[in-house]
Lab assay of single mutants.
Amino acid sequence: GTLHLNGVTVKVPSLEKAIKAAKKFAKKYNLEVQVHGNTVHVH
C-alpha cells in the first residue's frame, strides 16, 4: 500500500499496516484518514 501523510508519500508493505499507521498519526495530529483503493491519505 501507499501512505500519504500531509504530502509525504510512504510505501508500506501491507495496506493494514498503512491504515494502522495512518490512524495513529491522524489521532495524534487530529487529522482525517481516507482510504482510496490501496492508498491511504492523511490530511
Rank of each mutant, 00 (worst) to 15 (best):
V12G: 02
H41T: 14
V42P: 02
H41V: 13
K27W: 05
E16I: 13
E32W: 11
L3D: 01
G7S: 06
A22N: 00
A26Y: 04
A21Q: 07
G37S: 05
L31D: 00
G37E: 05
E16W: 12
E32S: 12
H43V: 12
Y29Q: 01
N6V: 09
V8C: 15
L5M: 10
A22E: 00
E16F: 07
H41C: 14
G1A: 15
V33N: 00
H4T: 09
L5R: 04
K23A: 07
K23P: 00
H41W: 14
V40M: 04
A22Q: 00
G7C: 15
K17V: 12
V40A: 04
Q34A: 11
K11T: 10
V8R: 12
N38K: 07
G1D: 07
A22W: 12
E16R: 13
K24C: 15
K11Q: 10
I19R: 01
N6D: 05
Q34Y: 14
K20P: 00
A18I: 09
A26W: 10
T39K: 07
S14N: 12
K23N: 06
A22G: 02
T9D: 05
K17S: 10
G7I: 09
H4P: 02
V42G: 02
V42H: 03
N38L: 10
P13E: 10
F25Q: 00
S14E: 04
I19W: 07
L31R: 01
V40D: 01
H43W: 14
H41R: 13
Q34P: 01
L5P: 02
K28C: 14
K28D: 02
H4K: 09
I19D: 00
V35Q: 03
Y29K: 01
T9Q: 08
T9P: 07
Y29P: 00
V12I: 08
H41E: 13
E16S: 12
H4D: 05
P13T: 13
A21F: 14
F25L: 10
G7Q: 06
T39M: 10
A26P: 00
E32R: 06
A26Q: 03
T39L: 08
T39F: 10
Q34F: 14
V35E: 02
E32N: 09
H43C: 15
N30S: 07
K28T: 03
N30F: 11
K20Y: 07
A26H: 00
H4S: 08
Q34E: 13
Y29V: 03
N38D: 06
A18L: 13
A26T: 01
L31C: 10
T39P: 02
G37Q: 05
Y29D: 00
K20H: 07
L5E: 02
L3Q: 02
V10W: 14
A22D: 00
V12K: 04
A22M: 13
L31M: 11
V42W: 05
K23E: 07
H43I: 13
Y29F: 09
L31V: 06
S14Q: 05
K17M: 13
G1I: 15
K11F: 13
V42I: 14
L3H: 03
N30C: 14
Q34S: 13
V12F: 15
H36K: 09
K20S: 08
E16L: 12
K24F: 10
A21M: 14
L15E: 00
A26V: 03
K23M: 13
K27D: 04
H4F: 09
A21D: 05
P13Q: 13
T39H: 15
K24I: 10
K17Y: 13
V42R: 04
P13D: 12
G1V: 15
I19S: 01
L5Y: 15
V40L: 06
N6F: 15
G37D: 05
H4Q: 08
K17H: 09
V8N: 06
K17D: 11
H36I: 15
S14G: 04
N6A: 10
L3R: 03
K27E: 06
A18D: 00
V8M: 11
E32Q: 12
T2I: 15
K23L: 13
K24L: 10
L15H: 01
G37K: 04
K20E: 11
E32I: 14
H36P: 02
H36T: 12
P13H: 11
A18K: 01
L15W: 06
N6H: 14
N30G: 14
N30H: 12
E32H: 12
H4E: 05
K27Q: 09
N6I: 12
G1N: 07
V35Y: 05
V33I: 13
V12P: 03
S14A: 05
A18W: 09
Y29W: 09
V10D: 01
N30W: 11
A21C: 15
H36W: 09
A22P: 00
I19H: 01
V10C: 15
T39A: 09
L15K: 01
Q34G: 05
K27A: 10
G7P: 03
K20D: 08
K24T: 06
V42S: 02
G7A: 06
T9H: 09
F25V: 03
E16C: 14
L5Q: 02
L5W: 15
N30L: 07
N6E: 05
K27S: 06
A21K: 09
K28P: 00
V8G: 05
V42N: 03
Y29A: 02
H43N: 07
V12Y: 15
T2P: 04
A18Q: 01
K23Q: 10
L5K: 03
F25D: 00
G1H: 11
T2E: 07
L3I: 12
V10M: 12
T2N: 08
E16G: 09
A22T: 03
G37P: 03
H36Q: 09
T2F: 15
L3W: 03
K27F: 04
V40N: 02
N38Q: 06
N6Y: 12
A26S: 03
K20N: 09
Y29H: 08
V10F: 14
A21I: 14
P13A: 13
V10E: 02
N38T: 11
T39W: 10
N38A: 06
K28F: 08
S14D: 13
H43G: 10
V8S: 05
L3M: 08
E32T: 14
T9Y: 13
H43T: 12
K23H: 07
K20R: 11
V12M: 14
K20Q: 12
G1Q: 09
V10G: 02
V42F: 13
E32L: 11
T2V: 13
G7F: 11
K28A: 06
N30P: 02
K20A: 13
V40G: 02
F25A: 03
L31T: 01
K27Y: 04
G37I: 07
H43R: 11
L5H: 05
G1K: 06
T9M: 12
N38W: 15
I19F: 05
L3C: 10
T39C: 15
A26N: 00
P13R: 13
N38G: 05
V33E: 00
A21G: 02
G1W: 15
T2A: 08
V8K: 12
Q34M: 12
K27N: 04
K28H: 05
V33K: 00
H36Y: 10
H41I: 14
K23V: 11
H36R: 09
N38I: 11
I19E: 00
H43F: 15
K24V: 06
H41D: 05
V10A: 04
H41Y: 15
E32F: 10
L3A: 03
A22F: 13
V33R: 00
K24M: 10
A18V: 06
V40Y: 03
T2C: 15
K24S: 08
G37W: 08
K24A: 12
K27I: 06
L3K: 02
T9R: 10
V40W: 03
A22V: 15
A21R: 09
A18S: 03
G1M: 10
H43E: 04
H36V: 14
V40C: 05
T2G: 05
G1R: 05
H36F: 10
N6L: 15
H4N: 08
A21H: 05
V35M: 05
A18H: 01
T39N: 09
V12E: 01
I19Y: 06
Y29E: 00
V12N: 04
P13N: 12
N6W: 15
T2R: 11
K11M: 11
V33L: 08
I19A: 01
G7W: 12
N30D: 07
H41P: 02
H43D: 04
L5V: 10
A18F: 09
H4L: 11
H43Q: 09
H41G: 04
A21T: 05
Q34I: 14
Y29L: 04
V10R: 07
Y29R: 02
E16P: 07
N38H: 08
V10H: 07
T2S: 08
E16H: 12
L3F: 03
N38E: 05
K28E: 04
V8F: 13
S14T: 09
V35H: 02
K11V: 10
H4I: 15
G1L: 12
H41Q: 12
K11A: 09
E16Q: 11
K27T: 06
V40I: 13
G37M: 05
T39S: 11
E32V: 14
N38V: 09
L3S: 02
H36S: 10
A26M: 08
K24D: 06
L15A: 01
L31G: 03
S14Y: 07
T2D: 04
A18E: 00
L31H: 03
